[in-house]
Amino acid sequence: MNPKSVNRIATTVINSLVGVVVALLVLLISYILVTGLPHMSLDFLLSPSQSYQAGGGIRDQLFNSIYLVILTLIISFPIALGAGIYLAEYAPKNWIVDVIRTLIEVLSSLPSVVVGLFAYLVFVIKFQVGFSIISGAVALTIFNLPLLTRNIEDSIKSVPDFQMQGALALGLSKWTTIIKIIFPSAIPGIITGIILSSGRIFGEAAALIYTSGQSAPVLNYANWNPFSPDSFLNPMRPAETLAVHIWKVNSEGITPDANAISSGASAVLILVIILFNFFAHWIGKKLYKKFTVGEVK
C-alpha cells in the first residue's frame, strides 16, 4: 500500500475514534441533564431527604456539601499557601527537597478511599471525634493539599523574578516581598486553582463515607450557634453530602424513588461542577487583566 492511502486510512480511523469519544461525551452529559433536570424542582432542592419514602429532597445534603467545601478550604488554604511559598521561594536545591516533592506527589496519587480510611482511623476512632463534618474536612484537606500546594507554587513561580530582585534591592526581606508583592500578582492563578479544587472537593465521596458519615440529621437553619447539636453550623455533627447521598441511595436502595433522586442530584452536582469550571476560567481571565493593566500592549 502506498503511503498516501495509509495516510488516508489512518486519518479515517482517528476521526472515527474521536467521533466515538465525542458521542460518548454528548451522551454522558445529555443523559444526566435530560434525566435529571425534570426532577430538579425548587421543592427538590429545598426539602429534606427521606429514607424510606418517595419524594425526598436534597436540601441538607446540598448545604453539607457547600459547608464542607468552605471548611476544607479554610483548613487547607493556609497550609498550602505556606507550603507553596516554601517550595517556590525558600526550598534549596538538594536531595531533601527532592524527597519532599516526591512525598507530595505520593500524597496526590493515593486513592481517596485510603485517605478517607486514614482520617477515619485517626480522627473518627482514635481521637473519638466521630462521624462529623470536621473529620470529613480533615480527610478532604489531606486529599486537597498536594494539588493546592502545587497550584500555589506554580502561580508564585510564574511571577517574574525581577519583581523579587527589585524589592530585595530596597532592603526588604524576602518574606515581606512574597506576601506584599509576589502574592498579589499570583492571585489570579491561585483563585483559579482554588475554584477548580473546590469542584473536586464538592464531588468527592469515597473519602467521606467513613469520615463525615452517611446520615443527615435534621438541621435547624435558624440556629446560628455552632455548638448546638441541631445547628446547621455545628461542625461536630455527621453530614451526608450530595455525592455520598447519590452513592447511598443507589447502593442501599431502600428509598423507593432512588432513581429520581440520584438523577436529580447528579444533575445538580454536574451543574455545580460546570459552574465552578466556567467561573474559574472567567475569574482567572478577569483578574489576570486587572493585574496586568498596561503591561500588555
Binding site: L81, I100, S173, T176
Partner: peptide, 26 residues
Amino acid sequence: QTYQESFGKIISSFCILIIIALVVSI
C-alpha cells in the same frame, strides 16, 4: 527585616512539615 525573614521561614517550613507529617503518618 531580619525578624520578618525568620518569621517567614519558620511559618512556611512549618506548613511543609505538616504535609510531610501527614504523608508519613498515612
